[in-house]
């Protein structure tokens, strides 16, 4: 079973040279740590940055320079700063090539829910609805099973939706999946040591297993 860093490491392999990438809060943020040497990407932060760098050295942080998670950060050479409308302009017009974000639930037709638990948690959608509605390439990083042992891979999401039919790929602690065009979680890779039965038990929606499924290399 993969831990958070394992999921991030596997997703990092989906990041290709020359991409502009938006990373959501949580596991997606960790992906930046595993992008292979020689793969040049530009990280976008939706509060208005292209070319986001690592955290600053102690004492060099600035209240005026934060990322979308409100963390102090640095800028890399060649970076740029812009207002929030332009930031979502480059997302909507699909100049940003890849969006990686977290989810509370995903459905077999690619719907995603990640912003609200009615009556309980209401934090708001932030930029997630804009990102999922526009991005061509969306990878979700999530836990497939909640703390109570219930699957978060559903036939239909129970929670309020963030976007419909938008997720392309999902990486969880148990495997890598593609959302099939006709609907269904198509298993592409198993996490190290995970059996098909474990994956079946952790999937409430339609699971598609086509032939021999390789174990992932991380």
């Amino acid at each position: 079973m993969l831990d958070k860093n394992g999921i991030a490491k596997r997703i990092a392999k989906e990041v290709k040279d020359g991409m502009f990438v938006n990373l959501g809060i949580g596991i997606p943020t960790l992906v930046a740590n595993y992008i292979p040497e020689g793969v040049n990407v530009v990280l976008q932060s939706e509060n208005g940055i292209l070319g986001m760098g690592p955290f600053p050295f102690e004492g060099e942080e600035s209240a005026d320079l934060i990322n979308a998670g409100k963390q102090t950060i640095t800028l890399l050479k060649g970076s740029s700063i812009f207002d929030s409308a332009m930031s979502f302009g480059m997302i909507r017009s699909q100049k940003v090539n890849l969006t990686i974000l977290g989810a509370m639930e995903v459905s077999e037709n690619g719907d995603i829910a990640n912003w609200k638990i009615p009556g309980k948690m209401v934090k708001g959608m932030g930029g997630a609805m804009d990102l999922v509605a526009s991005a061509k390439n969306i990878i979700v990083a999530m836990q497939q099973v909640n703390k109570a042992g219930q699957s978060k891979f559903l036939a239909k999401c129970d929670l309020p939706l963030t976007g419909v039919r938008c997720v392309k790929k999902v990486v969880t602690e148990l495997g890598v999946y593609e959302i099939a065009a006709q609907g269904g979680f198509k298993l592409l890779e198993r996490a190290p040591g995970i059996s098909i039965d474990e994956i079946k038990n952790a999937t409430a929606g339609k699971l598609i297993i086509d032939g021999e499924i390789p174990e992932m290399q991380v």
């Binding site: 209401v122 997630a128 804009d130």
Partner: peptide
Amino acid sequence: MLSGELEVELVPQGTLATRCM
């Protein structure tokens, strides 16, 4: 918000920015 004292309209961030624009 949960107690109903405050009225809240949650708006996607890009929509919020663009409605200002």
